[in-house]
C-alpha cells in the first residue's frame, strides 16, 4: 500500500513541482535537457568562460568565440562559477543519448580545480546540493534527500580542516632537491600560513605569492578526486563514442615564476604533462592553453584565476577551434 502511494506521489511530484525545484537548484541540467536537441557541441565551463573585463571592447565568451569558427554548428555553453569535473560528470549524464547525441563535448580543464583549496572549498556544499535532484532515484526520493541534506554537506570548519590537513601532510615530490616538503612549509617560508596575514608593506605581494603556492603546488596522480572525475568523464564519452575536448586553461605562469620561482613552474608543467599523457588518447583530446596567455592579460592581478581579457579569450578560443577543426574540417571557417 505504502509503495503504491509512493509511486503515485512520485508521479504527482514529477508532473507538478519537479521542474521548478530542478530549475531552482540546478538550472544547468534544465538547460542541457532543453537545448540538447539543437546542440552539436556542448561547452561545459566555470567562470573562465563568461568572465570579462569591463573595459574589453569585445565581450564575447570563449565559447561564443569558438562558435564563430563553426558557424554552421550549434555550440551551447553551460556555465556555473567554481564548478569542476565532479559536477561536469553529472551534467554529462543528463544528456539523453536516446534523443540526440552531441557531436562533441568540450570541458574546461582547470589546473587549480585539482588543488586542495578548491577540492575542500566552501562552495562545494552548494555545488553538491545542486546535484541531488539529478541522482538516479525517483525524483520524489531525491527531493526528500535534498531536505534531509543527504549529500556531501560538510561544515565550513570541516572543509577548512581538511584543506589545512592536505597542505600539512601531502608531500611534494621533485626530481631535484627542494627544501620545502609540503605546501605548508613552502607557504610558511614566506612568513604566512592560511589566507590572512597581518599588515605589512609587502603584504599584497606576499599574499599573492602564497596564493600561487597554495593553488599550484601539488603533484597530480590517480588518487586526486578530480582526476577520478575526469576519468569518469573520459570513460563516459569513450563508451558513448562522443569526442571529448579537455580545454586545459591558461594559468599565469609568468607571475608564478616571478613571484615564487622555477620550482612552482616545474610542478605546473609536470601536472600539465600528466594530464596530457593521461587523457590524450582514444576519442579525447587535451587542448593545451597552459602557457598561451601573458601575465597582463589576466583580469585578476591580485588573485589566481583563469579570467582573461578579450585577447586572452580570443587566443584560447582559437586554439580550441584549431583542435576541433580536425573533427569539423568542413564546418570550419577562419573567423579571425
Amino acid at each position: 500500500m505504502l509503495i503504491l502511494i509512493l509511486i503515485g506521489l512520485n508521479f504527482i511530484y514529477d508532473a507538478t513541482l519537479y521542474k521548478k525545484d530542478l530549475y531552482e537548484k540546478c538550472e544547468q541540467v534544465v538547460e542541457i535537457r532543453k537545448k540538447q536537441d539543437s546542440t552539436d557541441i556542448f561547452y561545459f565551463a566555470e567562470s573562465s568562460n563568461f568572465n570579462t573585463r569591463e573595459s574589453d571592447s569585445i565581450q564575447y565568451m570563449i565559447s561564443e568565440m569558438t562558435g564563430m569558427f563553426f558557424p554552421s554548428l550549434k555550440l551551447t555553453s553551460i556555465n556555473k562559477p567554481a564548478t569542476h569535473a565532479g559536477i561536469y560528470k553529472v551534467w554529462l549524464k543528463n544528456i539523453s543519448l536516446k534523443r540526440k547525441k552531441p557531436k562533441a563535448i568540450v570541458v574546461t580543464l582547470n589546473m587549480r580545480s585539482f588543488d586542495a583549496a578548491w577540492i575542500h572549498s566552501n562552495l562545494e556544499t552548494q555545488l553538491q546540493e545542486s546535484m541531488v535532484l539529478t541522482q538516479p532515484y525517483p525524483n520524489l526520493v531525491n527531493r526528500f534527500l535534498l531536505s534531509l541534506q543527504a549529500f556531501d554537506n560538510k561544515t565550513e570548519e570541516q572543509r577548512t580542516k581538511e584543506m589545512l590537513d592536505d597542505w600539512e601532510t601531502v608531500k611534494l615530490v621533485f626530481p631535484f632537491d627542494f627544501k620545502y616538503k609540503t605546501v605548508r612549509d613552502w607557504d610558511v617560508s614566506y612568513g604566512q600560513y592560511g589566507w590572512d596575514m597581518p599588515d605589512s608593506p609587502e603584504k599584497n605581494k606576499i599574499l599573492l605569492t602564497c596564493h600561487y603556492i597554495k593553488a599550484y603546488a601539488f603533484n597530480l596522480n590517480e588518487n586526486n578526486p578530480r582526476v577520478k572525475d575526469f576519468d569518469e568523464i573520459a570513460e563516459w564519452c569513450n563508451k558513448n563514442n562522443i569526442n571529448l575536448y579537455l580545454n586545459l586553461l591558461a594559468e599565469n605562469i609568468e607571475y608564478a615564476d616571478s613571484l615564487v620561482g622555477k620550482e612552482l613552474v616545474f610542478l605546473m608543467r609536470q601536472n600539465r604533462d600528466y594530464l596530457i599523457k593521461r587523457y590524450n588518447k582514444n576519442n579525447c583530446v587535451v587542448v593545451d592553453n597552459l602557457e598561451l596567455i601573458n601575465g597582463s592579460e589576466f583580469t585578476d592581478q591580485t588573485w589566481t584565476t583563469e579570467h582573461y581579457g578579450y585577447k586572452g579569450r580570443m587566443i584560447i578560443a582559437k586554439n580550441l577551434a584549431n583542435s576541433l577543426k580536425n573533427q569539423f574540417s568542413k564546418e570550419y571557417i577562419k573567423a579571425y
Binding site: L6, L9, Y13, L17, L140, V141, F144, L146, S147, N153
Partner: peptide
Amino acid sequence: YTVILFCLMALSGTQK
C-alpha cells in the same frame, strides 16, 4: 498519511 507524506517529501525546506 498520503497528504502528509507528500508535503514532507516534496515541500520540506531545503536549507539546513
